[in-house]
Each structure stands twice: as C-alpha cells, then as structure tokens.
Nucleic acid binder design. Structure first.
Lengths: 143, 143
DNA sequence: ATAGACCATTGACCATTGTCTATAGTCCAA
DNA sequence: TTGGACTATAGACAATGGTCAATGGTCTAT
C-alpha cells in the first residue's frame, strides 16, 4: 500500500512543473486520473513524482508528449521488450541526426550569403537581398 | 508603368504557393494589399511573384515570417545599409549554430542511452527506462 | 444561358505545449 | 471565525503558419 499524501501543488513542486502542467498532462493521458479526497482534491503518491520526472527527462531529449506517452505505456506493459524501447530511441537518434544535417545545410547557405556581402554601404545593391530575390528556395524540411 | 494582370490564382501558381497563403501573407503584412478590379478581384504585377519567392527562399533558410517581414522592409528602405541586412543574417547564423549544438548534446545523450541497452529481453529492467526515471533532466532549450 | 472554374469574405480549425482567467469551494492557522 | 493559501472546473488565449468550410459573386467557354 502506497501512501497517497500529495496534493497537486506538492506533486508539482517536487517534480518541478506547474500545477497547470500536471492537469494538462492528465487531460492528455500522460498522467493517470488520480483518486480524489472527499472534497474532490486530487491526491497522488510519490510514484507520480517519478513519472513526471520521466516525462521531463524525455522531453529534454527531444521526445514529444505523444512519444513520451508511448514510452510510458511500454514502461508499464509487461510484454514490452527492451528491443521496442531501444527502437524508439534509435528512431529518435535518426530524427535528431537528420535535423542536424538539415540545419547544417541551412548554415552553409547562410554563411555563403553572409560572405557575399561586404557589409558596407546602402542596401540598394545588397547581394544578400539580391540572392534572396533570385535563388530557388531549397526545401530543408524534416519529414 | 507595370502591367497588373495577375489574379491571385495565377500569382500563387507562379510563386508556388496556395491562394490561401497569399491572402494569409497579406493579412500578416508580408504582401501589400493589392489593387482591385471593378469586381473586387485582387490584381498583381509580376513583382509580387518575386516578393513571394523572396519569402519562400528566406523561409527555407529558417527565417520566421516576422523576420522576413523585417528583411522585406529593409529591402525597400532607401536608408537601409548592407550592415543591417548582414547583421540579420549573422544573427540567424548564430541561432542556427546554437540549435545545432543543442541537438548535438541531445544526440550524445541519446546515444549513451542507446548503448546502455542490449536490446534483448523484457523491458522490465530496461536500462533506458531506468535512466529516464532517474536522471536529472538537462535543459536543452534555445532562447 | 448555363456549367464550371475562379474569386470574395468571415470565421473556424489544425498541431503543440502549455498558461491564464473567472468563479467557486476547501483547508489551516491565529 | 476569518483571512490567506490552496484546490476545483470550464474555457479562453498564446505563437506559428497556414488550411478549410460556408456562402455568395464573377468570368468564360460552349
């Protein structure tokens, strides 16, 4: 039997999020609907602190709330395998790498643009603005 | 005197955007309010095609619509200097670099996480899920 | 003349991740 | 008992960049 003695405010404080965020996560299904006191206050056990920290950590690694929801389900599904978890992480690794490559191309283009311009004089004949006028827009879109 | 002979549909098609997008850009002030025919149709000259392509190109380089708005103003301000334009580009270069560094840190963390797990067996004792439970969430936030 | 393609406006809606407001009920300490 | 802190709900609002629907007017080719 776990002690349920945390109000939403205490839970939020311990996990380092706001009360609004906890309720928002509840609406999204990231945090289960908790029991209520007689006066309808939500009460939580300390395990919910861990769950919120899990969410925070995963978010900081670039997982979206939907992806985190999947991870949380895996975490509590006894048939889940390490392979499934690992493949989520590997998918995210691929996505992050793709994003980095994409940004690197953008960076290259920006640096070329920047080098084309002396930075002196009126913008009337600014090579940067001219380049923006002419070139075909490359698509650097992440799918 | 420039020929104004493009309906919004033709303009959009030439620039490679949708009609909705043109009207949206007009609302946002990225595209000027055009003249109208007697029947209230918008009519454009070919210079607006160039303007839309400018927007597209700048967007592909990671500029937001607001930033593009600024660039467009610079482009048509006679007092504007190359230095001003260049400094916008340099700011964007800094931002893109920061984003890349940020993602690189995330990638590192993800790869560490991934290497910690063999990928075999039940997720009950998955080191990835355990790591997400424990670790302090690092902030990889771009400001 | 009429169908089909085009254009007009207003306003709602999409995803994402919350944040804030208004109104009202609850709990605790002095 | 009373004031301040806490909690409840529903729903609006934020930013970004559009997209779509509903309703109705216009243009053009047959």
């Amino acid at each position: 039997m776990v002690m349920k003695d945390l109000t939403i405010g205490k839970l939020a404080k311990r996990a380092g999020v706001t009360i609004d965020t906890v309720r928002f996560y509840e609406r999204c299904g990231l945090v289960a609907e908790p029991e209520r006191t007689a006066s309808n206050y939500r009460i939580y056990s300390a395990t919910e602190v861990a769950r919120l920290q899990f969410i925070k950590k995963a978010k900081s690694l670039g997982f979206s709330l939907n992806e985190i929801k999947d991870l949380l389900i895996l975490r509590h599904t006894s048939e889940a395998t390490k392979a499934e978890v690992k493949s989520r992480v590997e998918g995210k690794i691929r996505a992050v790498k793709a994003k980095i490559i994409d940004l690197s191309h953008i960076l290259e283009d920006l640096e070329k643009l920047n080098q084309s311009c002396s930075g002196h004089g009126s913008a009337d004949d600014c090579p940067i603005l001219e380049a923006l006028d002419n070139g075909e827009a490359k698509e650097h879109v992440c799918h």
